[in-house]
Nucleic acid binder design. Structure first.
Lengths: 135, 135
DNA sequence: CCATCAATTCAACATTTGTTGAAACGTATG
DNA sequence: CATACGTTTCAACAAATGTTGAATTGATGG
């Protein structure tokens, strides 16, 4: 991701209604939400929502598909991921301990993964190994 | 991190000059950069930079310390980390594979970690001590 | 203590950005 | 084909935001 794109994305997220929309879509998952439901969830007029959706879409943070009369919007996880990556690129002058907390925070990411299969032990080691053996 | 804070942070990053400042500080590492050098790096008047620095500082994205005549700014890695976490919270309705790419991207984070001296153990404790004894 | 340098504050201006209501569009259904 | 529904486009207005230059503060060194 290049600077202009990242800038557009951050500007898009830096507005209350748009941030709410993105959060709603992020938690909604790949299924997405219809424009109408979004307008209700965020509490703004549909005409206003449309404006913000266009902004978000143009910034690469959401995608849309038509389904009958409705237009369904969903989060563009790849775009979000790229954005995070742009922000933290070259983050620590070779001292991983500086940015490690950010990585850990995202790993924790609170996707309660069907609690049964949550293995206690090796997560830390696994993560380190994953970092140690790049492409 | 709560919504108003996140909103302030994204709004702060959604401005070309401020995004440049943050990127410059993120790559500069904990050492930071003096305001004068930043103004030069970003290419704006110092009076204008001051305005943006205040904005970023208020958003919890940078910190400052005085050093002689200069004021040194550095990235608030914890703030950045919290922001990323806020954005991706509850991201995948229990399907980790959705947000996994984001985690992987950040892990890749391109901090070429001077491969030799990567010690598994004490870094965490060291960091805690450093934080524990402020002025 | 005065001169100097680095950085910040302030007020005025210019620009960008968000909101609103009326009208238009595309899609389904009777 | 006419109607109803969900969504988007457009133009006008209102509000927030970025920039500039002059004046101020704080720290250093002769």
């Amino acid at each position: 991701m290049d600077e202009p794109q990242a800038l557009a994305a951050f500007a898009a997220l830096g507005q209350a209604h748009r941030l709410r929309v993105v959060r709603a879509l992020v938690t909604a998952g790949p299924t997405g939400l219809a424009a109408g439901l979004l307008a209700e969830a965020v509490g703004i007029a549909s005409t206003n929502l449309s404006f913000h959706l266009k902004e978000l879409s143009h910034a690469g943070l959401i995608t849309s598909r038509r389904e009958g009369k409705s237009v369904i919007y969903s989060a563009a996880y790849a775009g979000l991921s790229d954005l995070v990556q742009f922000l933290m690129r070259d983050c620590c002058q070779g001292r991983p301990e500086v940015c490690a907390p950010a990585v850990a925070a995202l790993s924790a990411c609170a996707c309660p993964p069907s609690p049964a299969r949550f293995e206690p032990g090796p997560s830390r080691r696994r993560r380190r190994e994953a970092i140690a053996k790049p492409p």
